[in-house]
Nucleic acid binder design. Structure first.
Length: 626
DNA sequence: CTTCTCACG
DNA sequence: ACGTACGTGAGAAGT
């Protein structure tokens, strides 16, 4: 046994690194003593990387500890060590982890401890931290990772041991990314870092629990968030099947397309289409006038600027208003194809597991509003205007992809919270929400059809209301003249005064209560300083997320969770056996249908086909009409 | 590491 | 007094 005393700031602890059977039996004795004392034991793991499902990934260390001690079990040194770690995880009845879904999936996949067995015993400090203050450090919050939380709640001297560790990685010729797999388990900085995490998480727990109780965070909300985290982990474990052959060909096509247009751009002196500096200089050199600037004063050359120069509208169709600028056109096309190839298609091939599945990382508290975020690859951001990227994701043999999405969930939430009786009544009668509001706003009689352009404008304004948008932003979004948008906004407020009234009320309440807004689920959301007007956006977004969470709980209770393969804010995706698909997606949709105060929340279930792309082969508005 | 751009709901 | 579009992840360039 290697026994060491570590210090960090004002903290001191004993570190035990087990080397043989005798050490492991000492460890087991320690586990039993903790269990007898009713202690909550801190748990963490060190691995070769973050790609839990990619071949080559290894579990290296499992750490257990409390406020003063840390035990390091080198799982990679063989079966005896793995058995001891597995036994401890099963034997202990109360565990605390920081970001438990990560370690939970590692233990599930690489140590033989099922997620469902571990979960009832787990408290995740990240969840508690999010419920007390969901802001990141750079947003003015305490932060949500272990080091800033420890520095704030435990000891200001709880420094980031990663700096020291990365220096060690460099010393052995590795980087921040590759060092985790290469570093010697005996390395003192590595062991100290590994030990610190379980000590810190153990010390953090009582502080966060106290903070939660001071703030009145309901235990039921804490339990609900832990359940959601487990559901997210189960979906992540299930993964999505990639059509590898198709995806490889798509990468090639997109890369060729990117290169073809990059060649065009080079003819105009732009060596790199991704360089705004080069693009703006070349466009100015061609005689184009660029007026928009970025935050730092440089000339902006984003899509919004380039599309009109290329004589293209938002859907990339020719406008016919001018001679297209060939450079603007080439830059737009090269950048788009390049991004799709790299960030989406190639990213899928780079994160395949042994069975041809990807397992995008799900963070069930990704956003300040508690919305989920998904990364590696970013499955919530795949292009929706084109089916080719989503086509990479396919159903297993004899299965199909199905989806059920909420119908205008954020707007329904807003209507209910604002007590907009007209809208609520319209929704509950089963009328089309946007048709209904368009009639109200523009005074279109029942016996006349709703003009599509007015419907679109009204839809945009409704969403703008939920996001606390103004005339300028909406004008930019729709491309309509500012005056027309202003007029429509005024008409909307006249026809549906409850919405504007509620936004004003929320803003005032937020200011009165120290820039916070409380959701119906009991979540306290802190707003950015000087942005009390965003209260409505936070409330709508966060409440819609909680409704999705409720639906997922109901889906699990109905035994349908094993079919769920993805979640995109307001839609739930499933893999279903062909012959049961209609029935299964209908049942998923039923779980999503629920009342929210006075308003009906409804879903739109459908079967796409053998690939996710099948749902995107004709434009969404065309499908809607069907 | 920051800035810019762009993909989604 | 007035008005403010919300929330993410990712890659490339530039410092």
């Amino acid at each position: 046994m290697q026994t060491t005393t570590d210090t960090m700031g004002g903290l001191t602890w004993k570190r035990y690194f087990t080397e043989d059977e005798a050490d492991l039996s000492a460890f087991c004795q320690w586990v039993l003593s903790q269990e007898a004392a009713g202690a909550v034991v801190g748990v963490d793991s060190e691995t070769t990387g973050l790609d839990t499902f990619v071949p080559g990934f290894r579990l290296r260390l499992v750490q257990f500890g409390n406020a003063d001690e840390a035990w390091l079990i080198p799982a990679e040194r063989g079966d005896a060590f793995q058995r001891a770690a597995r036994w401890a995880l099963r034997r202990l009845s109360r565990l605390v982890l920081q970001n438990a879904p990560f370690d939970g999936l590692v233990f599930d996949r690489h140590l033989g401890v099922p997620l469902d067995e571990l979960w009832p015993k787990v408290t995740d400090t990240k969840i508690l931290a999010h419920l007390t203050d969901s802001r990141q450090e750079h947003e003015g919050g305490v932060g949500l990772s272990l080091k800033p939380l420890s520095a704030y709640y435990v000891d200001p001297g709880a420094e980031d041991g990663q700096r020291e560790l990365v220096a060690e990685f460099r010393a052995i010729g590795h980087t921040k990314g590759t060092g985790w797999a290469a570093i010697d388990l005996e390395n003192a900085a590595y062991q100290r870092y590994a030990a610190a995490d379980v000590v810190l998480v153990s010390r953090l727990l009582p502080k966060l629990e106290q903070r939660c109780s001071e703030m009145g965070v309901a235990p039921a909300l804490v339990a609900y968030e832990h359940r959601i985290a487990r559901i997210g982990a189960v979906i992540e474990r299930r993964g999505m099947r990639v059509d590898v052959e198709y995806t490889r060909a798509l990468v090639e096509d997109l890369e060729a397309e990117a290169e073809r247009y990059a060649t065009v751009a080079r003819r105009y002196g732009v060596e790199s289409v991704n360089s705004p500096k080069q693009v703006s200089a070349a466009l100015v050199g061609m005689g184009e006038t660029l007026t928009e600037t970025t935050d730092t004063g440089a000339l902006a050359v984003g899509k919004e600027i380039l599309l009109p120069l290329a004589d293209l509208d938002r859907d990339w169709n020719r406008i016919g208003a001018r001679e297209p600028n060939k450079l603007a056109d080439a830059v737009l096309r090269s950048k788009r194809a390049g991004k799709w190839a790299t960030s989406y298609a190639r990213a899928m091939l780079d994160s395949l597991d042994a069975d041809g599945h990807i397992h995008p990382k799900i963070n069930t508290l990704g956003a300040r509003t508690a919305r989920w975020s998904v990364s590696g690859p970013p499955l919530q951001q795949l292009p929706s205007s084109d089916w080719r990227i989503r086509r990479c994701i396919v159903a297993p043999p004899a299965h199909v992809v199905g989806a059920a999405d909420f119908k205008q969930v954020e707007l329904r939430v807003l209507a209910a919270l604002a007590n907009a009786k007209d809208i609520v009544a319209g929704i509950n009668r089963g009328e089309d929400l946007h048709d209904f509001t368009t009639r109200l706003v523009f005074g279109i009689p029942e016996d006349e059809p709703v003009p599509p352009r007015q419907r679109k404008l009204c839809k945009t304004i409704s969403l703008g209301k939920a996001y606390a948008g103004g005339a300028v932003a909406l004008s930019r979004q729709t491309g309509l003249p500012l005056a027309q948008v202003k007029q429509a906004l005024a008409a909307y407020d006249r026809a549906l005064p409850a919405i504007a009234q509620y936004a004003r009320y929320l803003t005032k309440q937020a200011q009165r209560h120290g820039m916070v807004v409380k959701t119906p689920s009991g979540r306290t959301l802190r707003l950015s300083r000087d942005k009390s007007y965003t209260a409505i956006a936070y409330l709508c977004q966060s409440t819609a997320r909680d409704i999705l969470g409720q639906a997922l709980c109901d889906i699990e209770d109905a035994g349908l969770l094993p079919y769920v393969m993805g979640v995109v804010h307001d839609e739930i995706l499933i893999y279903a056996p062909e012959d049961e698909a209609d029935e299964l997606i209908r049942r998923v949709g039923e779980c999503m249908d629920m009342p929210f105060f006075t308003v009906k929340i409804e879903s739109d279930p459908e079967i796409y086909g053998t690939s996710w792309g099948d749902g995107y082969k004709c434009p969404p508005e065309m499908r809607y009409a069907a």
